[in-house]
Simulated scan of single mutants.
Amino acid sequence: MNPNANVSLFNFNGHDVRVVEIDGEPWFRGADLLTNIYGTSQGKAWAYRPLNPSEITMIDRINLGMKAGRALTFVSESGLYKMVMRSDKPEARQFQDWVTREVLPSIRKDGGYVLGERARCGILSTPSHLLDHPATPPTTTAAR
Rank of each mutant, 00 (worst) to 15 (best):
F28N: 01
R108M: 05
D132N: 15
M83T: 01
E21S: 15
A92H: 02
Q42K: 15
A135F: 00
T57M: 10
L33G: 00
L64I: 04
I22F: 05
A143M: 09
T126F: 01
R70W: 00
L80W: 09
V99M: 09
L34Y: 00
C121G: 13
V103C: 04
M85Y: 00
V17F: 08
K67V: 13
T141W: 00
A143E: 08
R144D: 11
K67D: 12
K44M: 15
I62T: 15
A47G: 02
G14W: 04
T40R: 03
E77A: 11
N36F: 06
L115V: 15
H133F: 14
G69P: 04
D97I: 08
L130N: 08
V20F: 06
V75R: 01
Q42S: 12
T100E: 04
A31K: 08
A135G: 11
I59Y: 06
D88T: 15
P105A: 04
S8D: 14
M66Q: 09
R70L: 07
T73Q: 11
F28L: 06
G30P: 00
D110P: 01
S54Y: 14
R93A: 09
A143L: 11
E55F: 13
N2E: 14
Y113F: 08
R93V: 11
Y48D: 01
G39E: 02
E117K: 14
T40L: 07
D60R: 14
G111K: 08
S8W: 10
